[in-house]
């Protein structure tokens, strides 16, 4: 994330204050810079011999927008190791993704990271 100094913040932005990165005073903190304790939940997808490799790959690509390589790697982990962590983040997002996986017909659980 590019650091923004207070001097070059646009004064009259067309967007509402605080909604775009340029007008957010704390813009020097990127999404990926969050401290670890902000990401304490994970979503796990479990193997089910019913779920096709192609379908699991597709769901990971379409739902999480993962690359072909990442989606395939996760699918293979589910298939061969019986499970894969497909998402790490806040609790609300973890619950939302778990529910979405159930909607697609994949068996997912959420849990505290490291728990």
């Amino acid at each position: 994330m590019v650091s923004q100094s207070a001097q070059n913040l646009p004064v009259a932005s067309e967007s509402a204050p605080g909604t775009s990165p340029e007008t957010t005073p704390s813009a020097d903190v990127g999404l990926l810079d969050r401290p670890a304790e902000d990401n304490p939940w994970r979503v796990i997808v479990w193997n089910d011999p019913v779920n096709l490799m192609s379908y699991v790959t597709y769901v990971f690509r379409a739902h999480f927008h993962y690359s072909q390589d990442k989606a395939r790697t996760l699918m293979m982990a589910v298939h061969q190791e019986g499970r894969a962590t497909v998402f790490t983040g806040g609790r609300e997002d973890a619950e939302r993704h778990t529910s979405a996986m159930h909607g697609y017909g994949l068996w997912a659980t959420f849990e505290r990271d490291g728990g």
Binding site: E95, T98, S99, H102, G105, W107, A108, T109, F110, E111
Partner: peptide
Amino acid sequence: LLPQASDDDEEAAEFRRLT
């Protein structure tokens, strides 16, 4: 079709109730 979302039964029940 509607699997348990957590190995914590209480957590799973609450999740089921809401989703």
